[in-house]
């Protein structure tokens, strides 16, 4: 028996079926309206809610033009500068870049894995050319896909700080 696969492909296409009939324009119009409305609403949302994403050095180099703006700044928490309130609802630390340092005061829940010498992204307003008032801290989970070197861990494995009290 002849398999349909052996027939020329064009034979299986019904005459005139390449057009989508009278439904086509209606469907196209509906799709056009849906896409236009979504793009419009998305652009309104994007215009209303966006922030610059900067490194610590970029933020400090452009500080004069950014004061008062909401920003997202990435950097590393300087060793020996992290102070977390006992109720874990505020923290202060120095954010270091390649060359410069930004003072950060954060109000809001402090993530568990906010630790010194870890990369962090802070979100908030630049108060002046030296400090940023943050309301959101985004930390990286250091052991997913990229681990701290085992030797570092072993070297630091003696407990230096007691439990949170």
């Amino acid at each position: 028996m002849t398999s349909l696969h052996e027939l020329p492909q064009r034979m299986s296409v019904m005459p005139g079926a390449s057009r989508v009939g009278g439904t086509g324009p209606k469907l196209a119009l509906a799709c056009g309206v849906i896409v236009s409305v979504t793009i419009y609403l998305a652009s309104v949302g994007a215009n209303a809610d966006w922030q610059y994403y900067l490194t610590t050095d970029e933020c400090l180099n452009q500080a004069d033009t950014l004061i008062g703006d909401r920003l997202r700044v990435s950097g590393k928490i300087a060793t020996g500068t992290l102070l977390v309130a006992g109720d874990r609802r505020s923290a202060t630390f120095q954010l270091v870049g390649q060359e410069r340092t930004l003072a950060v005061t954060s109000v809001g829940l402090v993530p568990d894995n906010l630790l010194e010498d870890r990369e962090v992204v802070v979100e908030g307003r630049l108060e002046n050319s030296q400090s940023l008032q943050a309301d959101k801290l985004i930390t990286r989970c250091a052991s997913k896909y990229e681990s701290r070197a085992a030797t570092d861990i072993v070297a630091n494995s003696t407990e230096r700080a007691g439990p949170r009290r």
């Binding site: 609403l41 994007a46 966006w50 922030q51 900067l54």
Partner: peptide, 13 residues
């Protein structure tokens, strides 16, 4: 410039 889009973008769309 690097820009991050906020929740309003997602919610509106």
């Amino acid at each position: 410039r690097k820009v991050v889009i906020g929740q309003a973008f997602y919610n509106n769309a």
